[in-house]
Amino acid sequence: MEIEIRTGSSEVVHDLTGECERFLSDVDGDGLLHVWVPHATAGLAVLETGAGSDDDLLAALRELLPPDRRWRHRHGTPGHGRDHVLPALVPPYATVPVLGGVMALGTWQSVCLVDTNVDNPVRKVRLSFLPG
Results as ranks from 00 to 15, higher is better:
Met1Pro: 06
Met1Glu: 03
Glu4Lys: 15
Arg6Lys: 14
Thr7Tyr: 08
Thr7Pro: 01
Thr7Asn: 07
Gly8Asn: 10
Gly8Ile: 10
Ser9Cys: 11
Ser10Pro: 00
Glu11Gly: 06
Val13Phe: 05
His14Tyr: 15
His14Met: 03
Asp15Asn: 15
Asp15Ile: 01
Leu16Gln: 08
Glu19Gly: 01
Cys20Leu: 03
Glu21Ile: 05
Glu21Leu: 04
Arg22Ser: 15
Ser25Met: 03
Asp26Leu: 11
Val27His: 09
Val27Gly: 05
Asp28Glu: 11
Asp30Tyr: 07
Leu32Glu: 06
Leu33Pro: 08
His34Arg: 07
Val37Ser: 05
Pro38Gly: 01
Pro38Asp: 02
His39Ala: 11
Ala40Pro: 01
Thr41Met: 04
Thr41Phe: 05
Gly43Val: 03
Leu44Gln: 07
Leu44Trp: 02
Ala45Cys: 14
Val46Gly: 04
Leu47Val: 14
Glu48Ser: 14
Gly50Trp: 10
Gly50Met: 14
Gly50Phe: 11
Gly52Glu: 07
Asp56Arg: 07
Asp56Leu: 09
Leu58Ala: 08
Ala60Met: 14
Leu61Cys: 08
Glu63Ala: 15
Glu63Thr: 14
Leu64Tyr: 03
Leu65Ala: 12
Pro66Lys: 09
Pro67His: 14
Pro67Arg: 14
Arg69Trp: 01
Trp71Leu: 05
Trp71Ile: 03
Arg72Ser: 15
Arg74Gln: 15
Arg74Trp: 06
His75Phe: 07
His75Ser: 11
His75Trp: 08
Thr77Val: 11
Pro78Ala: 11
Gly79Thr: 04
Arg82Ala: 15
Asp83Gln: 11
His84Met: 11
Ala88Glu: 04
Leu89Lys: 03
Val90His: 01
Pro92Gln: 08
Thr95Pro: 05
Val96His: 13
Val96Arg: 10
Val98Tyr: 08
Val98His: 09
Leu99Trp: 03
Gly100Ser: 12
Gly101Phe: 04
Met103Leu: 14
Ala104Pro: 01
Ala104Ile: 03
Ala104Asp: 15
Ala104Phe: 00
Leu105Thr: 13
Leu105Arg: 12
Val111Met: 13
Leu113Tyr: 09
Leu113Gln: 07
Leu113Thr: 04
Asp115Lys: 03
Thr116Asn: 09
Asn117His: 14
Val118Thr: 11
Asn120Thr: 13
Pro121Gln: 13
Arg123Asn: 02
Lys124Phe: 06
Arg126Gln: 05
Leu130Thr: 08
Leu130Cys: 08
Leu130Asn: 01
Gly132His: 11
